[in-house]
């Protein structure tokens, strides 16, 4: 190819990328930011200012919701890691070759099923007239129907379920690359199981742990459906607040400010995570 042809080929390939990112990502987000610093002072009259943000910090309900979402998301991330790590270890190190592929595929199944169907499944299981409640009455542990929905524990169970696979996939990938002789050497040198886990396996798996945690945290903090359906009115999830400002109250300016805050908050958390682990965003996300 001569120079002019090369240039043309580059432009033809660059154009769709550029239009996609510019029109659907960059400009819309700039639009949201501009909207968030607008204040309505009268009918159709707007002024620029930080009023929407000040309102957010003055109203405890708002920042409490963000704080709550943050704490719950971190909690969900930790629980997912603790539950998922042994499973990933089992798949990568203990299961035999054939079972390994099968178990891995089984872990992926929930990914192929819609979030909505999964949450609906939990509702059918856990509501007052649900399967768990009926079963408990049937075997006589409780005397009347029990409502398992609409509390924080259920929201955590549902969220952990939704994001589990994004923790397991990077963990399995990392642990798979680990040489078994490292573990053997640890035992031969007299290490107990706990020591081997703490000093050899976990440090080796660290890149996988970090990328899993980051993706899981982002997905949890940005989730909408699971907290709403399983937590009901008590869920107080921040994305719900954004929806309410936009669609129910038609207060787009403060909704936009909330959106910007959520984005800043998650970006900072992810940035700290990446800094602590010395990884880059592209390597982390591309892995899952």
């Amino acid at each position: 190819m001569n120079h002019a042809q090369k240039r043309l080929a580059f432009l033809l390939l660059f154009a769709p990328f550029f239009l996609w990112i510019l029109l659907l990502i960059v400009l819309p987000h700039i639009g949201v930011f501009i909207l968030s610093v607008k204040e309505k002072v009268g009918m159709g009259v707007y002024e620029y200012g930080l009023g929407n943000y000040i309102e957010f910090f003055n109203e405890p309900v708002y920042w409490n919701t963000l704080l709550r979402t943050a704490v719950m998301s971190i909690f969900v991330t930790i629980v997912t890691l603790i539950i998922g790590f042994p499973i990933a270890y089992y798949i990568a190190k203990i299961a035999r070759q054939r079972a390994k592929a099968g178990l891995f595929l089984l872990c992926l199944i929930p990914l192929w099923v819609s979030d909505l169907v999964r949450s609906f499944g939990w509702i059918v299981l856990l509501r007052e007239t649900g399967i768990v409640s009926s079963f408990l009455q049937y075997i006589g542990i409780v005397s009347g129907p029990v409502e398992f929905l609409y509390n924080d524990a259920t929201v955590v169970v549902g969220l952990v379920y939704t994001v589990m696979l994004f923790m397991i996939v990077p963990l399995v990938t990392t642990l798979d690359g680990m040489d078994d002789s490292l573990i053997e050497a640890g035992f031969n040198l007299g290490g107990s199981r706990l020591t081997v886990l703490r000093r050899i396996i976990i440090p080796y798996a660290m890149p996988g742990i970090i990328s899993g945690c980051i993706v899981v945290f982002m997905l949890t903090a940005g989730s909408y459906l699971t907290p709403i359906l399983l937590g009901g009115k008590n869920s107080q999830w921040f994305t719900e607040q954004i929806y309410e400002q936009f669609i129910t109250r038609f207060n787009w300016e403060s909704g936009a400010a909330f959106g910007v805050l959520l984005l800043i908050f998650t970006s900072i958390t992810v940035w700290i995570g990446l800094r602590l682990s010395g990884q880059t965003l592209s390597s982390t996300v591309a892995k899952t």
Partner: peptide, 8 residues
């Protein structure tokens, strides 16, 4: 987050 993509 999907909600943010939506509103933007």
């Amino acid at each position: 987050p999907g909600v943010i993509l939506g509103i933007s």
